[in-house]
């Protein structure tokens, strides 16, 4: 019964992906992509990975979807004024088909072979996690892996995010290019709802962060919710940009700096890099996670808001492309 459900779910996932690939209209492809993200979140639930489901729904479907829709809107807002380019978008050049087909089939077969003839694992990672979780300072295994057993990954990840934002800022159009921006769309209903629900979003984000020590949740999911709240603020027409210059840069670096400071400062006591002193691991991890949440939220938001402005307003002009 469960397997039957999983098979249907997997096929639906595959069909949605096919929809993304084959749809003629770009806007439709993006909508299919969002549906794909939501189905994938369901798949994570079926794979016993609620953390991934949370992150996928918030980041994979939500944030990526918003980014893509915004990009499509940008494209078609500019296309409407350059009609002569319109025919260019969906045409594939006459290139030989056999090359992609061969490489794609080859990849498929190789991957299947890799799955079929995989080596047996010599150590059992779940057992190791279970044996050591008492010392990690948190109760939720995934948080323990992220912030304690494999905290290098997380530290480097934050560094990657930071680099992404720095590049994004560097690519920002010059200031005089942006003065002629129309004021953001001000829809009273969206505005009012955002003003009233934003505190709830904050609370939920912080709750998810807090919950990460005991159950599914943590800095990544909390940060995604924070970023979503900020994106909402901007879409609803609140002038978040005003605080961008001063607050954002501080917030952006905060997570990385705090993480690095904690990692290095334990070396004074003669410990290896990135270990926590006994007894304080729980508190330190929570502190780092709180800073990471703030940092991830701000980074993801600024990756959204650093986008060059497009001439249309916030409206999703991609729908004009519908045929």
């Amino acid at each position: 019964m469960n397997l039957a459900f999983d098979i249907v779910l997997g096929l639906a996932l595959l069909l949605t992906a096919l929809g993304v690939f084959s749809s003629k209209d770009l806007f439709r492809a993006v909508v299919m992509f969002i549906a794909f993200g939501l189905l994938l979140a369901l798949v994570w639930v079926r794979l016993d990975a609620p953390d991934l489901a949370l992150a996928e729904a918030a980041i994979g479907a939500g944030l990526t979807g918003v980014l893509m829709i915004d990009a499509v809107a940008h494209l078609s807002a500019n296309t409407l004024q350059n009609d002569q380019r319109d025919d260019q978008y969906d045409h594939s050049p006459k290139r030989p088909l056999w090359l992609p087909v061969i490489s794609c089939v080859g990849l498929f077969v190789l991957l299947l072979g890799a799955i079929r003839f995989r080596p047996e694992a010599s150590v059992s990672l779940p057992d190791m996690v279970r044996d050591n979780i008492a010392e990690s300072g948190v109760e939720h295994p995934i948080t323990a892996v992220l912030l304690n057993f494999r905290s290098y990954d997380t530290l480097l990840e934050i560094a990657v995010l930071l680099v992404a934002v720095v590049v994004a800022m560097a690519l920002k159009p010059a200031a005089e290019d942006r003065v002629h921006q129309p004021p953001p769309a001000h829809d009273p209903i969206l505005h009012g709802l955002t003003a009233r629900l934003l505190p709830a979003m904050l609370l939920v984000g912080m709750y998810v962060l807090w919950a990460g020590s005991y159950m599914p949740g943590g800095a990544f999911q909390g940060g995604a919710i924070l970023a979503a709240a900020l994106v909402f603020l901007q879409l609803a027409g609140f002038a978040v940009d005003r605080y961008a210059a001063s607050l954002l840069r501080l917030g952006l670096a905060l997570g990385f700096l705090v993480f690095l400071t904690v990692a290095v400062s334990v070396m004074i006591g003669g410990r290896p890099f990135l270990t926590y002193p006994e007894g304080f691991a729980g508190q330190l991890i929570f502190f780092i996670e709180a800073m990471l949440t703030l940092s991830i939220g701000l980074i993801l938001f600024s990756l959204f808001s650093q986008n060059p402005p497009h001439s249309g307003a916030v409206g999703h002009q991609g729908a004009n492309h519908d045929q």
């Binding site: 980041i59 994979g60 990526t64 980014l67 995934i142 995010l161 992404a164 934002v165 994004a168 980074i299």
Partner: peptide, 14 residues
């Protein structure tokens, strides 16, 4: 994978 999802979205945004 959790790390990967976050990195993927930042790569996409970039």
């Amino acid at each position: 994978v959790l790390t990967g999802i976050v990195v993927a979205v930042s790569a996409t945004a970039l």
